[in-house]
Structure formats: C-alpha cells, structure tokens
Computed example of a mutant assay.
Amino acid sequence: MYSFLTTENWADYELVDSGNFEKLERFGQYYVARPEPQAIWDKHLPEQEWQRLANAVFTRDKGSQEKGQWKLKKGMPEQWFINYTYNGLKLRFRLGLSSFKHVGLFPEQDANWKFIYDTTKKLKTPQPKVLNMFAYTGAATLAAKAAGADVTHLDSIKQVNFWARDNMEASNLDNVRWIVEDAMKYARREVKRGNKYNGIILDPPSYGRGPNGEKWQLEDELNEMIKLCREMLDGTDYFLLINLYSMGFSAMVLDNLMRGTFGEMVQNEELGELYLLDGGKRKLPLGTFFRFSSVGR
C-alpha cells in the first residue's frame, strides 16, 4: 500500500509556513525559521509575519550548504523541551540549535513513531529486542522502549547518544543499551554472532562518517545493510522500518530492495512518503519509508 503520511495531533509542533527554500516551525512556544531545499514555492505568509514570529533564524555561512549561524531574539533559549503524547505514549524531548540547522528532532517522523509503538506492543515475544541504527537523538528508540522493548540504540556520534540519553531521562524511561559505533561494522558483527532482533529501525543519512572515519555513502552501502538486516531479523515475530531522506531516492527503490531481500517476510507492508502540512495547506515532502511486520497494525 502506497501512503502519504503526515504529522497529526501534536500540540507542541506546527509547520506554520514554507516557501522560498525556507520553513517556519513552532516547537512548543518558540518559532524557528531555517532553510528547506524542498520548499521551492512562494511563502503563504508575508515576510513581515515571518520576522515577527521567528524567535530564531538560521542563516548559512557563505560558501556552505550545511553550516551556519542562528540569530536569536531576546528571550530565545538555545535549548528547551517539548512534549509528545500518543495513545498512552508520553515522551519529552530536549531541543537545541545546532550549527547544521537541526534542532534535535525530525517532526515528520511522528507517523513512524506511532507505528513503532503500536507494532512493538503487538509482538508476541515478551520484551522484544529492537535495534535502532542511525538512531540520532532517540525518539524512535524511546517509542519502542515505552512499548516494552529491550532496545539497542546505535549512533556513530557520542554527543548525539548523550542527547538521546537526556531525552530518555526526561521521558522517565531507562535501561536502553547505548552504542557508539559505525552501523555497518556493528551489523556485520551481529550477523557473525548470530544475534537476532524482533524489530529493526533504520534512518540512514545520504552520507556520513563512523567514529573512526568509516565512510557511509547511501547508494553504495544500503544494499549490503539491508541484507545484513535480513540476517539479524527474527523470522517469526518481527517488524522492520526504514526511512530515507535523500532527494532523488524513490520509494520504489526501497520496494525493490525489501521485496528482493526479505521475500515472503514482507507482510502488512506500507511504503510511501512522509510530509508536513503547512498553514497554507502545502505539503512539504520530507522522506520516503518502507515498513512491514508479522503482526499488522
């Protein structure tokens, strides 16, 4: 089933407007304006309204596509917390203004967090084992943990794992296994050990580096990573979710990879796109996903 999924019913988040390669978002009580390469249309709100609302504005450094500076209005903190609730799930996230325009959370992942929480609860295995790779600040990790899973959280950046731990503590959760390592190295080792997981979550970047300089290039590495996941995924009681934010990568790429690798394990599948709906009713595309499970929803 091909789906277009968006973030819904989240009191602490809103995509206020988008356009002219920017987006204006509300996280809790604070408004943040930052670049968005997909927003090629015109803004819905006038520029004066953006300037009035935005507590923090990100501007790229000259000659850089990634790094930049935040300009803050008086009273705008560099870190703050927001809440997230869904069907008994209660999480709390620490946000912060990074030099790469990020704030520590990708709100379009709301639909995937709900899938992880609901599906983990339906697995038959008591305290199912879930592996979250490229796990960032841990929202998906915490959704699985809150549903009763034994979770391994893996990211190659130590500071990001510390951030995820802060989110765990703020959400009144505990006992997550934290690993700072290159994802491919870890997956190969787990396959050699014969270790199995009931759930695997992946949100790989287009490119990146491991803690020891290991190179990750999505188009070069993804096929092998998916094959390793096939070896790690339990054969009877399972789910797998992969999300890609890479302009130019169709969801059909994931469809081909998943069906070719997992075969008859692909049940109750769903693939498609994640988007955010702004105040002008424009749909901002923010990634493709493929997910399947042995238990449905």
Rank of each mutant, 00 (worst) to 15 (best):
V160S: 11
M225K: 01
A11L: 12
S99A: 13
Q51A: 15
F58A: 06
S206K: 10
A33D: 01
L254R: 04
L142A: 06
N9A: 14
Q109M: 14
H153W: 07
I200Y: 05
S250P: 06
S99M: 07
E14I: 03
I157Y: 09
W163Q: 13
K43N: 11
S250C: 02
H44Y: 14
F239H: 00
G296D: 07
K73V: 02
G260E: 00
L45V: 12
N223C: 06
L24T: 13
E270C: 04
P77E: 04
F106D: 03
M225R: 01
V103T: 15
G260K: 01
E269Y: 13
T6S: 13
A11S: 14
D174W: 09
A56G: 09
Q217P: 00
G104I: 08
I179K: 10
L105D: 00
Q65P: 08
L222H: 03
L95W: 09
A33P: 01
E231W: 04
T85W: 00
L53H: 06
G75C: 02
P211Q: 00
V151H: 12
A140C: 11
S293D: 06
L5N: 12
L202A: 14
Y207K: 10
L277D: 04
G148D: 00
K185E: 05
A149G: 12
Y238I: 03
L218R: 10
P37T: 05
D174G: 11
L142K: 04
D166A: 07
D118H: 10
Y31Q: 05
E190S: 10
D234W: 02
P205M: 00
E231N: 08
P37L: 03
G213Y: 10
P37S: 04
L131T: 04
L276A: 08
R230P: 01
Y207C: 05
K73Y: 04
G28L: 11
K62G: 06
N195T: 14
N167S: 08
M232K: 01
M133C: 13
E22F: 08
Q109H: 12
A54N: 07
E66H: 10
L228G: 05
F262L: 00
V295F: 08
D203W: 06
I82W: 08
Q127T: 12
F162A: 15
W10E: 02
N256Y: 08
K122H: 09
K281N: 11
Y197F: 15
L89N: 04
V160M: 12
R188D: 06
L254F: 01
T261D: 04
L91W: 02
D155L: 02
S3D: 12
H153I: 02
K67P: 00
R52L: 05
N112G: 00
A135E: 01
V180D: 05
T261N: 07
M247A: 06
F100W: 09
T141W: 03
